[in-house]
């Protein structure tokens, strides 16, 4: 069964602005689907139509085999949503917020146990009685995930989950989201951040100016975006012939430039880990390893310099 099916979906706003044009794709259950596009591409309009916040101008939407908007109430309990900036009642504690959302979501049986589990899952243990107004955006997003998971949804819709987070916060949230997908929750992730897609999604569709391209696997997409040749800039404390020899032995190495230690590779997934491994094994100490262009840089170039 498909978690989401869109057929000819179009959204035209007043004054003739077309946010989404003739869009069709499916999201099979259990997959982590990424919708990648710059801000203003129309991703939020698709999410708003999926959640029945706005009505499509044309086309059809099916979520878990139910027609939207006609049968939305039948799937409402099976869909979770994490907005870009999740809203909570600031003058209530985190657990009182979850209690309230549990009460209006008909989560009454084992409510307290469920809330306790979700605090654990979201990494918010110890913050149960803290007022939400004092929460950082990262903690709000964690609480947002906990709130979205109250009904144990089969489909979780995430809008820009990593936006506004510091690197550590981003890593934690992405790990948490990945964990959910491992537990069979279908993910629909809309983002402008190509790294989010590369880390979480199995399938990706790019979106630009209301048009969605045909979905591909993330592996294919990443390889396509990067191009064939990737340079790795390695910062090694003790470069010697043994280390260089080890690097040359890695499959795909094209050339090594010793000054600054730039290594050109024919790209293949996992190459960073291989380079890291052989350097360490040859006695080298790797301080950092940077891809050039990075996935973001390659994607920005592909999008003509604009991802936001």
């Amino acid at each position: 069964m498909n978690a989401i099916e869109l057929e000819g979906l179009t959204k035209r706003y007043k004054k003739g602005v077309v946010a989404v044009e003739d869009t069709s794709f499916t999201v099979p259950q259990g997959t982590a689907f990424g919708l990648l596009g710059p801000i203003g591409a129309g991703k939020s309009s698709i999410i708003n139509m999926l959640l029945n916040f706005i009505q499509p101008s044309a086309g059809t939407i099916k979520i878990l085999d139910r027609e939207i908007p006609a049968q939305f109430h039948e799937v409402q309990q099976r869909v979770g949503y994490l907005p870009e900036r999740p809203g909570f009642y600031g003058n209530f504690s985190a657990e009182n917020n979850l209690r309230f959302f549990a009460n209006i979501s008909d989560v009454r049986e084992e409510r307290e146990e469920k809330i306790e589990k979700l605090f654990k899952l979201a990494g918010l243990e110890g913050k149960e009685t803290t007022l939400v107004s004092t929460f950082s955006l990262g903690d709000r997003k964690r609480l947002g995930i906990a709130a979205a998971m109250l009904n144990e949804p089969e489909l979780l819709i995430l809008d820009e989950p990593s936006t506004g987070l510091d690197p550590q916060g981003r890593r934690d949230i992405m790990a948490l989201i990945h964990e959910l997908n491992v537990h069979d929750v279908t993910l629909f992730l809309a983002t402008h951040n190509v790294r989010d897609i590369a880390e979480i999604c199995d399938v990706v569709a790019t979106m630009k100016a209301g048009h969605v391209a045909a979905p591909t696997t993330t592996k294919e997409f990443v390889a396509d975006v990067r191009g064939k040749i990737v340079e790795l800039e390695a910062d090694i404390t003790n470069v010697n012939e043994r280390v260089l020899q080890a690097i040359r032995s890695v499959k795909g190495v094209k050339s090594i430039q010793c000054e600054g230690l730039k290594i050109s590779f024919e790209y293949r997934p996992g190459i960073n880990e291989d380079v890291n491994y052989v350097i360490t094994r040859a006695g080298g100490r790797l301080r950092s390893l940077r891809e050039s262009p990075s996935l973001e840089e390659a994607y920005v170039r592909r999008m003509g310099g604009r991802t936001r």
């Binding site: 907005p83 600031g90 209006i104």
Partner: peptide, 16 residues
């Protein structure tokens, strides 16, 4: 107030 605090969205996605 609920709209500016973004809690209206949280209410709207629930079966209420």
């Amino acid at each position: 107030g609920e709209r500016s605090a973004r809690t209206l969205v949280q209410l709207a996605v629930r079966p209420i």
